[in-house]
Computed example of a mutant assay.
Amino acid sequence: MKINIDRSRCIGAGQCALTAPKVFTQDDDGFSELLPDHEEALDGAAVKESVKVAVRVCPVQAITIE
């Protein structure tokens, strides 16, 4: 699973970090970013599902997965 964040669309709502805290965080400006060790966390089915939910709840559709 490859996760992409369109930082030009991100408004810093934080829904991704709340929904999938093992994968997403917010930078000093409040915008979404991936945690450095997020790929290790993606080994679990529950974490993968939480990422899919984060994609759906992003209010500006800034997150996509491949």
Score class of each variant (00 low, 15 high):
Ala17Thr: 06
Ala45Pro: 07
Asp28Thr: 08
Ala46Ser: 15
Gly12Ala: 10
Ser8Pro: 03
Glu33Cys: 14
Arg7Gly: 00
Gln26Tyr: 06
Val23Ile: 00
Arg9Ser: 13
Val57Glu: 09
Val53Ser: 10
Glu39Val: 08
Val51Tyr: 04
Val51Trp: 08
Leu18Tyr: 11
Thr64Glu: 12
Lys52Phe: 05
Asp29Phe: 10
Ser32Gln: 04
Asp29Pro: 02
Val55Asp: 00
Ala45Cys: 04
Gly44His: 10
Ser8Gly: 03
Thr25Ile: 08
Thr19Asp: 12
Gln61Thr: 10
Lys52Cys: 05
Ser32Leu: 03
Leu35Tyr: 04
Cys16His: 10
Ile11Thr: 13
Gln26His: 06
Val57Tyr: 13
Cys16Ser: 13
Asp6Leu: 09
Ile65Ala: 07
Ala41Pro: 02
Leu18Val: 13
Pro59Glu: 09
Asp37Gln: 08
Asp29Thr: 10
Arg9Gly: 07
Lys22Tyr: 06
Ile3Lys: 03
Val51Lys: 07
Arg9Gln: 14
Val57Gly: 07
Val47Lys: 07
Lys52Ala: 14
Glu49Phe: 08
Asp43Val: 11
Ile63Tyr: 02
Gln15Thr: 08
Leu35Asp: 03
Gln26Val: 14
Gln61Gly: 03
Val55Phe: 04
Ala45His: 06
Glu49Ile: 05
Lys52Tyr: 04
Thr19Pro: 11
Met1Leu: 12
Thr25Leu: 12
Thr19Gln: 14
Ile3Met: 04
Ala20Asn: 02
Asp29Gln: 14
Ser50Val: 01
Asp43Cys: 04
Glu49His: 10
Ala13Asn: 10
Asp29Ser: 12
Leu18Gln: 13
Leu34Glu: 02
Ala20Pro: 02
Val23Gln: 00
Glu49Val: 06
Phe31Cys: 03
Gly12Tyr: 06
Phe31Ser: 01
Arg7Trp: 00
Ile65Cys: 08
Leu34Asn: 04
Val51Gln: 03
Gly14Thr: 12
Ile3Arg: 02
Leu42His: 03
Leu18Trp: 11
Gly44Phe: 11
Phe24His: 01
Ala62Asn: 08
Glu39Pro: 00
Cys58Ala: 04
Lys22Arg: 14
Gly44Pro: 00
Val60His: 05
Glu39Cys: 01
Arg56Val: 04
Thr25Phe: 01
Ala20Met: 00
Phe24Pro: 01
Asp28Tyr: 09
Gln61Lys: 11
Glu33Ile: 07
Asn4Leu: 11
Ile5Val: 15
Arg7Cys: 00
Leu42Val: 01
Ala54Met: 03
Ile11His: 04
Ala13His: 13
